[in-house]
């Protein structure tokens, strides 16, 4: 049984609630199954904040700072459409935010930005090759179903759960396995569409479009058929955004954050698996214009064989 379960559904990497909309790895089938269902829960704490480019070094929060925790329940589904190489997937995040400082605390539960993906196995692996990877290409759309910072109605902005802007990106994932080792590489680029908002006080904000990019390099080791130890480093980038707010023009800093991820996957039976992971945004840098968090996650994956 070839159980290469590259964990593609690690969509737990998110910026702080105020600036949600971090990396969203597409819900894709990269194994030999026809359908895939996944439910994952992550829980993270914001450790610090990185200023904009040239704005100084990151500041780690202390006991007097705003305490910012969040849980994200992510539901994913992907299925092969043509019985062969074409597939589609959907990812639905539900975000639980908890913010407190001093005697004030806020909780919020909001749906995040839903993403849908259309994927195609551009380089299949019909016969074994020492070097040739298996490659999937995808078109991913991020739908602004979450509440953005510009629509927030709460004091701490705890009700923010999404970027609030439509995103369209294209990317590829290359996977290669050698016996007990595996390697994966992801590259994604696209656009965040401009949008205008009307905030709670009646004012308006117009955001321009921007470029987004994601790169990821991961590796894994499977000491047995049912266990895989994995690690990955990914980087998320968003170019500066032009903002027109009440006739005042400004431009944001670029956003850059590095995610480090380690995971342990364990197969339960033939079709199910559990993934336990840890993600840290403080290990690698530089980081610009983002909060920095650490989170753990537990995920259950059910596969339907072809």
């Amino acid at each position: 049984m070839w159980v290469f379960l590259f964990y593609l559904f690690a969509a737990q990497a998110r910026a702080a609630p105020c600036c949600a909309g971090g990396s969203a790895v597409p819900a894709l089938i990269t194994g030999d199954e026809s359908e895939l269902y996944q439910a994952g829960m992550s829980y993270g704490t914001v450790i610090g904040d990185a200023p904009g480019a040239d704005g100084g070094i990151p500041v780690f929060r202390d006991g007097l700072s705003i305490a910012e925790d969040r849980g994200i329940l992510t539901l994913n589904h992907a299925r092969i459409l043509d019985g062969d190489r074409l597939q589609a997937g959907i990812s639905i995040p539900i975000q639980f935010n908890q913010l407190s400082q001093g005697g004030r605390a806020e909780d919020s539960v909001q749906i995040g930005d839903v993403s849908v993906v259309l994927g195609f196995e551009t380089i299949p692996e019909w016969e074994y090759s020492v070097w040739k990877p298996r490659v999937f290409s995808f078109l991913q759309a991020g739908i602004p179903t979450g509440r953005s910072i510009h629509e927030s109605q709460s004091f701490f902005a705890s009700d923010v759960s999404g970027l609030g802007q439509f995103q369209l990106s294209f990317g590829s994932i290359a996977l290669k396995r050698w016996s007990k080792w595996d390697l994966n590489l992801l590259a994604r680029g696209g656009s965040v569409m401009g949008r205008s908002f009307v905030n709670a006080s009646g004012g308006g904000v117009i955001l321009g479009s921007s470029f987004l990019g994601t790169g990821s390099l991961g590796a894994g080791f499977s000491p047995s058929e049912r266990v895989r130890l994995g690690g990955a480093i990914s980087v998320d980038y968003q170019s500066p955004v032009e903002v027109l707010d009440s006739n005042i023009y400004s431009i944001t800093s670029e956003r850059l954050v590095w995610n480090s991820n380690v995971s342990l996957m364990f197969m339960i039976g033939a079709d199910d698996s559990l993934v336990l992971g840890y993600q840290d945004q403080t290990w690698f840098g530089p980081a610009y214009n983002t909060s920095l968090s650490r989170s753990g996650y537990l995920s259950f994956v059910h596969r339907v064989e072809r």
Binding site: A50, I57, P58, V59, R61, T282, G285
Partner: peptide, 18 residues
């Protein structure tokens, strides 16, 4: 990359100035 570039937030950060 983690230890030598000096840009790792873990190794290169400051505390809040109150």
């Amino acid at each position: 990359a983690l230890v030598s570039c000096g840009v790792s937030p873990l190794l290169h950060h400051e505390s809040p100035n109150r």
